[in-house]
Design a protein around this nucleic acid. Structure first.
Lengths: 172, 172
DNA sequence: CCGATTGGTTGCATTTTGCAACCCAATCCC
DNA sequence: GGGATTGGGTTGCAAAATGCAACCAATCGG
């Protein structure tokens, strides 16, 4: 990747891919949700190379997902903790995880997500209409917003036209 | 990545990262949702190198996210279309997209997701308890499921203990 | 003060990516 | 029918990202 692909524009998926689209960033975020905060913890629990870990932590801090702070009890130790932005990735992680469990072999029933207070299993993550009906891809339209750059706008308009021609396909 | 990290086990996030954790796979899936199906379309719209595209399409087909079929009207053309598994990534893409728009500069209001039938904006993706309350990370417990391997189980138990020690933190 | 720990950095080998050229079967154009 | 074109690859090579091990400075614990 890395090379500035002209056509991506400010597409949100392209932007998030540039930030988290590598083999470690999401794992680091997951670890942070599981309670890791120190360089050492990430290193040992993930088995990631230290230079790569340094690099990713820096990137995540710069992007505002993690906050870097020297520990007050031991000044050798650096604490990385999730910011508000970082914690906002929670639904993404859960959605990815649920997808894995349902659609990848070997992940079948490896983790259960339950509400801590009640012990009850949480709901499957869904896309909901304003009034609460579950939507699938065919029922959704992606329109260019006010800040869409021309490339993105063009792409979305083309997609709308294409969607017009097709009705609702299905593949096994 | 690639090297078999012993500690990941069958963690669903690790598995999905191994499959989609690169700079292009998610973009390809996004393109497929936007209506692309042919090799050429992916290539032109993403600006991806052809050998990489070949490689990723193969990987996604093998993983069961895309279906590869020669076109019936023009036998030179290969149609790649989302399978059921692939389409099940829909909530993941929307969640990622919404996160981008809220937390990355430059993505602010670039895309609007509206229900095609009504034109109304969809809801923000949330993690919901069994009875419909929105949950955040602190209210959720991740328990090893019946098929969790020992490494994953150990990790989750450690996380539970850590969560016990902390109450509910907040960082700016 | 001494050895161990923490969080890095550096240098080098390996792997993955990007780019351009080449290939071949199916199709189009006349 | 025959030459040019198109679609979907593959191949070779340069550039970038990754993994590994060794090295370093600051801090801690005794």
């Amino acid at each position: 990747m890395s090379k500035a692909n002209p056509c991506h524009g400010n597409c949100p998926i392209a932007r998030v891919t540039a930030l988290l689209g590598d083999g470690w960033s999401l794992m680091i975020i997951r670890e942070a949700f599981l309670g890791s905060g120190k360089f050492n913890e990430f290193e040992k629990r993930l088995g990631i190379a230290r230079n790569i870990l340094t690099n990713r932590l820096r990137k995540l801090v710069e992007a505002g997902l993690l906050q870097r702070k020297a520990s007050e009890t031991d000044r050798r130790v650096i604490e990385y903790r999730l910011t508000r932005s970082g914690r906002a990735l929670f639904p993404v992680l859960i959605a990815l995880s649920q997808w894995s469990e349902q659609h990848l072999s070997d992940c079948s029933h490896s983790v259960r997500y339950v509400e801590r207070a009640t012990g009850e299993e949480i709901q499957r993550i869904k896309v909901l209409s304003a009034d609460g009906r579950e939507l699938d891809a065919g029922e959704l339209a992606m329109l260019p917003g006010p800040d869409a750059d021309p490339a993105l706008k063009a792409r979305l308009v083309a997609a709308m036209e294409q969607a017009g021609r097709e009705a609702a396909h299905a593949a096994p």
